[in-house]
């Protein structure tokens, strides 16, 4: 049986519309269980009205993204913080 989720790299394209940097490389901490890891390691449920990214440790929701024709809704309350790598000097 195929997995019913994708890995977090599936977020790269949709989030590229919102952020100026590749957020899939950012490292975050799950607000529920504290697991720390890259956005790319999240489990993304995409066969849904929006994208739902869950923690690979506890399956709680870390990030949600809904896209309408003219807006995006981004919910990051399941992530304590994201460390977003930026180009150094």
């Amino acid at each position: 049986m195929s997995a019913d989720y994708l890995d977090g790299n599936a977020l790269a394209g949709p989030l590229a519309e919102i952020f100026a940097t590749d957020v899939s490389a950012a490292v975050g901490r799950c607000a529920s269980c504290g697991l720390t890891g890259p956005v790319a390691s999240l489990r993304v449920y995409s066969r849904a009205p929006g994208l739902v990214a869950r923690c690979p440790g506890c399956e709680e929701v870390v990030l949600r993204l809904v896209r309408s024709p003219d807006a995006a809704w981004l919910d990051l309350r399941g992530a304590v913080c994201l460390r977003i790598p930026l180009g150094g000097p």
Binding site: D4, Y45, R47, A48, G50, V52
Partner: peptide, 9 residues
């Protein structure tokens, strides 16, 4: 009957 789900079953 498409299956939509926001998480594991």
């Amino acid at each position: 009957f498409p299956v939509l789900s926001a998480g594991p079953t």
